[in-house]
């Protein structure tokens, strides 16, 4: 299993959705709504990524009383990794924004 050093967009979106407890398809609909359908996660990808994140202890089962809708949430390790990736993405955006501003002058 490949480790998740740099989060892909799909993984990033899913982890972002799991900052609060959610079940799989609440994650799917949140991503679709927030991005107005510009980014969608297929069910097989979502399931694969959820399993991977659980195995890497970045998310954990929060509530499995309803076996059709298991609820997951970020672990402390998951929060750390997400924060690191936010910083990585901020650097990218910062670089681009500053460059564009300078370019306009």
């Amino acid at each position: 299993m490949k480790s998740l050093e740099q989060l892909t967009d799909s993984v990033f979106y899913i982890m972002a959705a799991l900052t609060e407890p959610r079940h799989g398809y609440a994650v799917m609909s949140l991503i679709e709504e927030t991005t107005k359908g510009a980014f969608v996660v297929g069910p097989a990808s979502l399931y694969t990524i959820i399993k991977k994140l659980v195995a890497e202890q970045l998310i954990q089962l929060h509530d499995d009383s309803d076996s059709r809708r298991k609820v997951y949430v970020l672990t402390n390790k998951g929060r750390e990794i997400l924060l690191e990736d936010i910083e990585r993405r901020k650097t990218m955006i910062h670089l681009a924004e500053q460059g564009l501003q300078r370019g306009q002058k």
Binding site: K2, T8, D9, S10, V11, V40, V41, G42, P43, A44, S45, T48, I49
Partner: peptide, 11 residues
């Protein structure tokens, strides 16, 4: 319909 695998990593 959105494909079941939407990203390369999971496919």
């Amino acid at each position: 319909t959105t494909p079941i695998y939407s990203d390369t990593e999971s496919s």
